[in-house]
């Protein structure tokens, strides 16, 4: 009886994150501004980190957190690089 609780929660989590990613994709396509698209990409990265964490719980391996940490860093650097480029016309001055 207790075996189904975590599976049900994981299924709900995967479904919620998938739906969230679909909504982010809609905002990424629709815009209307460049800043909206940067924000949508940033949110997509955060949601994908959530997917990796849930996959780590479901797989029980415990090795997927390096991927989550790497994606967190790369996503942040990407967002800041987009914003810097739009602000200054250059990324590393």
């Amino acid at each position: 009886m207790t075996g189904g609780i975590l599976e049900s929660a994981l299924t709900f989590g995967f479904a919620a994150l998938g739906l969230a990613l679909a909504m982010n994709l809609w905002r990424l396509v629709k815009g209307p501004g460049v800043t909206d698209r940067i924000l949508a990409l940033d949110t997509m990265v955060i949601n994908v980190i959530g997917l990796i964490v849930l996959a780590g719980i479901a797989g029980g391996s415990g090795t997927s957190f390096e991927a989550a940490l790497l994606l967190a860093m790369v996503g942040f650097i990407g967002t800041v690089a987009y914003a810097k480029f739009l602000l200054r016309g250059d990324i590393v001055e």
């Binding site: 929660a9 919620a16 994150l17 969230a20 909504m23 949601n47 959530g50 849930l54 719980i57």
Partner: peptide
């Protein structure tokens, strides 16, 4: 863990909504 996963999924969904 299941309750925290459901809470996290709901918050992520609300943020994207």
């Amino acid at each position: 863990a299941g309750a925290l996963i459901v809470l996290g999924g709901a918050f992520a969904l609300v943020g994207s909504w």
